[in-house]
């Protein structure tokens, strides 16, 4: 019998509902992004995000069911992102999911947001284990070893800024508008790697550090300004991006080698980064690594990935009861 997961994601500034069949087939997804609103403030304002989630939640639910031509009776279980994320935003999704689970007497499946990003890859092609997941987003930079479904072994991560965070700060310094990451990526493509920036934390560990690189960009921009020199935004963006992508790919390829793993999945908002996608594609082809990167629409926050992750959690018997609470931070497990 087919399993249909209705998934809800509201951890940051996207209200999203999706129906996923058997963990891999997207029946329908609705994503309502608040990005244009938050752009006015140069970043996500948590209270505004919460307000917009509650305004839209039932409309997004309805639209998703209508698009799927399904009713709640067709749904096997309800999956929801319980964390990590903005607590006020998460709460709307969690309360909505609990209410639906209660009214329709359906199993409630709690999903970790990062598990969702990783399982977005299962919507592209069936994930093969063991694998290494490179998780790169505004809040995460991690290498995770998975020997099977829902077995997450953390092998390295950022010691300071997440990669997306570093992108956003660099965007501010060189005067690129919100959302900074994608816009810096776009600029980088128009420039050349001319600035002498350090390769961050180039050691034998699987950890990352981006604060030094970030400071180097800030200092460089500041010094040039003092000297009355115009910085070349495109070239600076390109130089920055090259260092970031170099170290991410270098440590990822080494992790694959060390753990003797032939499967790599990339997850999180920064997996939309064009240079990262290109470089990993080339390197993995060379090393005969089975690489999966989600389509751009599954890289940013969406409920489809929660539905995919929710399916495997459901199959493994993971359940929450009506006391389920949102968590701002929580370890992937």
């Amino acid at each position: 019998m087919d399993t249909y997961i209705l998934a809800i994601e509201s951890s940051c500034d996207e209200t999203s509902v999706s129906i996923i069949k058997n963990g891999s087939v997207e029946i329908s997804t609705v994503v309502l992004s608040q990005m244009d609103t938050h752009a006015n403030y140069g970043g996500v304002v948590p209270e505004i995000a919460s307000r917009m989630h509650i305004e839209n939640i039932t409309m997004v639910l309805e639209e998703c069911l209508t698009k799927a031509n399904m009713t709640m009776d067709d749904i096997t279980a309800i999956a929801v992102t319980y964390g990590p994320g903005l607590i006020g935003s998460l709460l709307i999704g969690v309360m909505a999911a609990k209410t639906l689970a209660y009214i329709y007497n359906k199993p409630l499946v709690p999903v970790h947001h990062i598990a969702g990003h990783i399982y977005a890859n299962n919507l592209v092609k069936e994930m093969q284990f063991p694998l290494i997941a490179l998780v790169v987003s505004g809040g995460h930079t991690e290498l995770v070893y998975m020997k099977d479904n829902y077995s997450f072994e953390f092998i390295g991560g950022t010691l300071d800024d997440a990669v997306g965070e570093a992108y956003d700060k660099v965007a501010r310094v060189i005067g690129v508008s919100y959302p900074g990451g994608p816009n810096v990526d776009r600029l980088a493509y128009e420039g050349n790697d001319t600035y002498n920036l350090p390769l961050p934390l180039d050691d034998d560990s699987f950890n990352f550090s981006f604060s030094g690189l970030k400071s180097a960009v800030i200092n460089l921009a500041h010094n040039e300004q003092q000297r009355g020199n115009e910085i070349n935004k495109e070239d600076l963006a390109c130089s920055f991006e090259n260092r970031v992508v170099d170290i991410l790919t270098k440590k990822t390829m080494r992790a694959l080698q060390k753990y003797n793993v032939k499967n790599l999945v990339v997850a999180g908002g920064v997996s939309a980064n064009r240079m990262l996608r290109e470089k990993l594609t080339i390197l993995c082809e060379k090393e005969s690594i089975n690489l999966t990167i989600p389509e751009i629409k599954y890289c940013t926050d969406n409920a489809a990935m929660i539905g995919a992750a929710g399916y495997f959690a459901y199959k493994l018997g993971r359940r929450a009861d009506l006391t389920l609470n949102a968590k701002a931070t929580d370890q992937l497990k």
Partner: peptide
């Protein structure tokens, strides 16, 4: 309380919509 209001109201919204 903003958060308090939203907790009760999310339940009410989803209940009223689904029932």
């Amino acid at each position: 309380s903003f958060t308090g209001i939203r907790i009760g109201l999310t339940i009410a919204k989803v209940m009223a919509w689904s029932l």
